[in-house]
Design a binder for these strands. Structure first.
Length: 496
RNA sequence: GGUCCUGUGGCCGAGUGGCUAGGCAGAGCUCUGCAAAAGCUCGUACACCAGUUCGAAUCUGGUCGGGACCUCCA
């Protein structure tokens, strides 16, 4: 099966056909850097990291654009709250750009810990003020926006007369209007759903730019439209983000692009589902967000212990990106053990060579081959990482059994063994981006020292001096190093 | 109120109209000086009520429960 992706726009899985194969343009809404990203935010970026990796693995040349929102984001009700950066800067008595810098840096650090690849381009809103002004001007010229005292609003009801505004989330304008309050006397916009493209700045506002309509700053939604157009063109392949962005942000993006360029920006809209805590969405405003470093240190009232970045990444892969994922200690602990098992299997197969040359195909061969082939089929079916993982665990069982001579190695042909090896390692490392966090090979000195102790223990065992051999094993275990007596008489170790 | 999603064994979580993932935890066995690790075996789940069907956890309708979005949020 070729790659199929669920498109929010059509609410079905569609065959993925790039506009300009082998090139793929993908835009993902990045973080607003006025505070630390929480784990829910990370889930989206990790999901798209895997999508990005898989597209590349499948042979596509991907341009992955993920923005940094560092201006224009207002608090509270539509277009009336305080600028988030300005507020934070005021509270901490620093420049808004210091806030931006601090949280951009910390975001990058978190992405690095989660082993997310850098996007091809990471544009900032403040770096594209001109493009946003130009786009706003064009929308005014086309008659879909109007100015009120230096602020420019998008005219949703006028737009809806020509194109369906609520197309992305399947909503009628009347229904949307029902959900909004009446405009009050002090409201300056004409329609209840109208949103700002450009906002007039008060004199004391710290971040403001010159525009045809006076000093001001851009609205939130226009940045993504302007930047996706600049780097991916007016139409590109995939636009992604969290599900919470679909109803407002992405809906407005589509309207802006249609009004400006007469085309919808993306062919495929992908939305990742929310991370929940006790069944409720993790969100900044609810204050139930876990920060990555709280997780890595275990420093959080709801956590019993620390969990590593790779454990969390693995944890997220066990669920499909379009399902909600509930966050709990128990689930995390299960993930930690499962992840370690998978990594153990990978270490083994990486270093294992099949002794015998065998070319005839056995039943076992067919079984292994199917498990391998299905991994690709499952990824092609809207990135079903959970099912792929199930297959990888099946392969892991085979790998352990081979190593422990619990499976007849002569039943496996050389080509199938090689296939299993590449499939296993490609999926774990290249596509899923998982890496062994306590690999033995990473520390040669430690290994040398341990070999010394291992030899002492071997001697003790040979002399049936089990008191000494157990002492060595137990004391190392206390230091977090586990010794294992293998079947062939060797002793291996790993950090636990 | 509107637009949707969802309800799976002790826990987390996939899923196709019939062949009933996977992980964690639990029980037994094998291996081992003892462990550990690993292998094998076991538990037979799909909210409830009707309907369609030879056959439904999977389709349809209803009931009850949970959640998201419609206001800033990945």
């Amino acid at each position: 099966m070729s790659l199929h992706i669920y498109n929010t726009l059509s609410r079905t899985k569609e065959k993925f056909e790039p506009l300009h194969a082998p090139h793929v343009g993908m835009y993902v809404c990045g973080p607003t850097v006025y505070s630390d990203v929480h784990l829910g935010n990370c889930r989206t970026f990790i999901s798209f990291d895997i999508i990005y990796r898989y597209l590349k693995f499948s042979g596509y040349k991907v341009r992955y654009v993920r923005n940094i929102t560092d201006a224009g984001h207002l608090e509270g009700d539509r277009d009336e709250g305080e600028d988030k950066f300005a507020k934070k800067a005021r509270l901490e008595q620093v420049e808004p750009m210091e806030i931006v810098q601090r949280y951009t840096t910390s975001f990058h650090e978190v992405m690095r810990l989660f082993n997310c690849e850098n996007p091809s381009i990471e544009p900032t809103a403040t770096g594209h003020i001109l493009e946003q002004i130009e786009m706003t001007q064009t929308i005014i010229n086309k008659g879909f926006a109007y100015e009120v005292d230096g602020t420019i609003y998008f005219d949703v009801e006028k737009y809806n007369q020509q194109k369906p505004y609520g197309i992305l989330t399947n909503r009628k304008l009347e229904d949307l209007l029902e959900g909004t309050r009446e405009l009050g006397g002090q409201d300056e916009k004409h329609g209840r759903l109208d949103f700002a493209l450009w906002i007039k700045a008060k004199p004391e506002h710290l971040m403001q730019w010159q525009s045809p309509w006076g000093m001001g700053f851009p609205g939130w939604h226009i940045e993504c439209s302007a930047m996706s157009k600049k780097y991916l063109g007016s139409q590109f392949d995939i636009h992604g983000g969290g599900m919470d962005l679909a109803a407002t942000h992405h809906t407005n993006e589509i309207a802006q692009n249609e009004a400006c360029y007469n085309t919808s920006p993306a062919k495929v809209w992908m939305h990742t589902n929310m991370l929940t805590v006790n069944g409720t969405r993790m969100s900044k405003s609810l204050g139930n967000g876990f920060l990555p470093h709280e997780l890595f240190t275990g420093n959080h009232p709801l956590l019993e212990k620390a969990y590593s970045p790779m454990t969390v990444r693995f944890f997220m892969l066990q669920t499909h990106y379009r399902s909600t994922l509930d966050f709990s200690n128990e689930a995390l602990q299960a993930a930690e053990k499962g992840f370690q098992r998978l990594m153990n299997a990978m270490e083994i197969i990486k270093n294992y060579e099949l002794g015998i040359k065998n070319s005839s195909k056995s039943e076992l061969d067919f079984e292994i081959e199917k498990l391998c082939d299905d991994c690709y089929e499952l990824m092609n079916d809207d990135f079903n990482t959970a099912m792929v993982l199930a297959n990888l665990f099946e392969l892991a069982s085979k790998i352990f059994a081979i190593k422990n001579n619990q499976l007849d190695v002569s039943q496996i042909s050389s080509t199938i063994f090689a296939k299993m090896k590449t499939t296993f390692v490609d999926f774990i490392e290249t596509i899923f981006g998982l890496q062994n966090e306590n690999s033995n090979s990473s520390n040669d000195k430690l290994d040398e020292v341990l070999q010394l102790l291992i030899n002492l223990r071997k001697e003790a065992k040979a002399k049936k001096d089990f008191a000494t051999s157990d002492l060595i094993r137990n004391q190392l275990a206390e230091k977090g190093i586990q010794l294992k007596d293998e079947k062939d008489g060797t002793i291996s170790w790993n950090v636990i």
